[in-house]
Amino acid sequence: MSRYSAMFERLGLAREGAFGAFLMLGDPDLETSAALLDAVVAGGADMVEVGIPFSDPVADGPVIQAAAKRALDAGVRVDDCFELIAGFRARHPDVPLGMLTYANLVVARAGFMRDAARAGVDSLLIADVPALEAQPFVDQMIQAGLEPVLIAAANTPDATLARIASLSKAYTYCVSRAGITGTHAGGQFDAPLVERLSAAGAPPPVFGFGIATPEHVRSALKTGAAGVICGSAIVDLAAHGGDVINLVDLLKAATLNDKARNDSGAQ
């Protein structure tokens, strides 16, 4: 069973939503980045999503753009990112790890997917490869032993959701609103999208974009989504030297349902 499947099964039994923490690898340097990866796990993240810094991140807002720039300015290379991941994998053998990046990095470097899988990456999402263009990339991911993750949005038509369902594995990345990554919430977690994905037989829906507070986490999970991913809020806090463990702990607590919270309170 894959790490993602095992995680969703465990959380399903515990009636919890999955909490995913996003970090930009190499931000602001390799050593701090390794420590931040450990910090989000210590805070209770169920899954960790990592970005590979890219010079032209068109799907990202100012916080993630700045994170990528810090890493690139520090001279971080793709190989350094794979080493960070290998170190993470050795310390956290069971935590699902997804990679989020852009197409040019994947095609530019020979053996990108193979090396990602060897380092211990479980899934790969390429922000600028929509379902329309995904087939050859998905074929290579499967061959390399990576689980493909695709993005779905409220405006994605049913035919495309069906395609996403047939192409992807680990989870489905649902964008909570139009636009780019960032901490400002849309507050529009689209319940019909979750239902449509479920009807299409897609992998578990996880909401990203604009998740910054426990309220966002709760309203995202109310749609029936299997989890949430928080990126900009964590990255921004880390950039200002804030307590990342505490933030992750706070947001993870919001993924427990009332029953689970009461149970843990009774212990």
Binding site: A59, D128, P130, A131, E133, T156, T160, V175, A178
Partner: peptide, 22 residues
């Protein structure tokens, strides 16, 4: 899409999913 949007191996539509309907 009604056209392939390809010129030999080049071209295509490499944008975030949210922009594909537009």
């Amino acid at each position: 899409m009604r056209l392939s949007g390809r010129f030999g191996r080049f071209g295509g539509c490499f944008v975030p999913e949210i922009l594909v309907p537009a």
